[in-house]
């Protein structure tokens, strides 16, 4: 099923599929929550041991990982909660003020 929500705010009665159904799956990624941040995590690659503790604790899925290696942070979705920085045993993530 097609699912184009560009004009969602102007949808009228009956435009949305019945039952508040979204005819696709896994579409939460389309909703960017990065704008919620007041602080942003900064990854210090040199200190990182790739222990994956940040990946485990991140309440979103904002730690980007490939083949057991930390690649960085998904700033489109990271809400800046700071859990990764607090949990990192190597001080490889630091929180800093979001640039406005």
């Amino acid at each position: 099923m097609s699912w184009d929500i560009k004009n969602l705010k102007n949808w009228k009665v009956g435009d949305h599929p019945p039952g508040a159904l979204i005819p696709t799956g896994g579409n939460a990624v389309e909703y960017k929550t990065g704008g919620w941040r007041s602080e942003k995590p900064r990854w210090i690659e040199e200190k990182c041991t790739h222990c994956m503790i940040c990946w485990v604790f991140c309440p979103d899925t904002s730690i980007e990982v490939k083949e057991s290696k930390m690649l960085g942070i998904d700033y489109d979705h990271c809400k800046g909660c700071g859990i990764c920085a607090a949990e990192c045993p190597s001080d490889a993530i630091e929180m800093e003020e979001e640039e406005k």
Partner: peptide
Amino acid sequence: EEPITVGPFD
């Protein structure tokens, strides 16, 4: 084959 989302947040 056709995943859907039921009961989303509005």
